[in-house]
């Protein structure tokens, strides 16, 4: 039993760091440019597809990872320059609609190019297999390395934002963009870079999730909506909130999926009924969590410090 709990905790952590990569980009873009980007999930999908395609064709993850990053980053910067730039001064409604249009376009384009069939990619050979964390408890090396990469990126992002000149500009831009512009900073370039950074993080999340899930059209929206939950739970515009929110949401979701079937089978005798019900209820869990957070702390658990 404790083994199962440990395993679920690690799985939750793994989902959590993945969600963090998406939530960080989303909240960074929102915090600095005041823009809500529904197409963030599309960047995740683009990263996953690019990496999966290159991995399938060449068999090399050393090529696949940069390809995924490049595709997501380039797509992000292109989107920023062609569309987003015109939306900064608009209200959220216009942003939502334009980026919704972008999702429709991206999904259909990927369907056109790759087809509707989900793609399955194997785990990179070097990271396959399991490792015994404590004797007798094997755990997937790949999932463990996702946790490692995710945490490393979180630290890297923290250092980037807190310790570098670019980070200083990003923080300044979030506080008062007009002053930053008046001081002679090329704010347009800064925006494009921040958007590209968000796209890279989303793309990386997509690359890592590829071998765990099937790579398919619509994968972006599925995780995007969960990312929204993370951002609301953590507090909009706060990277720290995105981190803790992601970990909480990841663990809660995974735990519910792990334990709900057992509980339900205890209550309902019909196994198929119980499984269906628990699948639905555990999918609803994180949204209920969000509702609770809203009830008691509408600004989120870790709101941005102003």
């Amino acid at each position: 039993m404790t083994v199962f709990v440990l395993e679920q905790l690690l799985n939750g952590l793994q989902l959590g760091v993945t969600l963090f990569l998406l939530a960080a980009g989303l909240t960074l873009i929102f915090g600095i440019m005041g823009i809500i980007n529904l197409a963030h999930g599309s960047l995740y999908m683009i990263g996953a597809y690019a990496a999966a395609l290159v991995a399938r064709e060449t068999g090399s993850w050393l090529l696949a990872v940069p390809a995924g990053l490049l595709a997501a980053g380039a797509a992000g910067m292109l989107i920023e320059m062609v569309i987003m730039r015109r939306l900064y001064d608009r209200d959220h409604l216009d942003q939502v609609l334009a980026t919704y249009g972008l999702i429709l376009f991206c999904n259909e384009l990927v369907t056109l190019l790759v087809g509707r069939q989900p793609m399955f990619v194997g785990i990179p050979p070097g990271l396959a297999g399991a490792i015994e964390l404590i004797p007798g408890v094997p755990y997937s090396i790949y999932r463990l390395s996702i946790i490692g990469f995710g945490l490393a990126l979180a630290v890297g992002l923290y250092l980037l934002i807190q310790k570098t000149r670019l980070g200083m500009l990003i923080r300044a831009g979030a506080t008062n963009r007009d002053t930053v512009r008046a001081l002679g900073v090329d704010i347009r370039l800064l925006y494009t870079l921040v958007f590209g950074l968000g796209a890279l993080l989303a793309g990386f999340a997509g690359i890592m999730m590829g071998p765990l899930l099937s790579v398919q059209v619509g994968m972006g929206e599925q995780i995007l909506i969960m990312t929204f939950v993370v951002v609301v739970v953590g507090g909009v515009g706060s990277i720290r909130g995105a981190f803790f929110g992601a970990i909480i949401v990841g663990i809660v979701d995974t735990m519910l999926r792990g334990f709900m079937p057992g509980w339900m089978r205890g209550i309902i005798s019909d196994t198929a009924q119980a499984d269906a019900l628990s699948a639905g209820l555990s999918s609803m869990g994180v949204y209920l969590l969000m509702a609770l957070v809203l009830l008691f702390r509408p600004q989120g658990l870790f709101p941005a410090r102003t």
Partner: peptide, 9 residues
């Protein structure tokens, strides 16, 4: 959707 998306934008 390939047409509708850009039209919407």
């Amino acid at each position: 959707m390939l047409i509708l998306g850009p039209v919407l934008i």
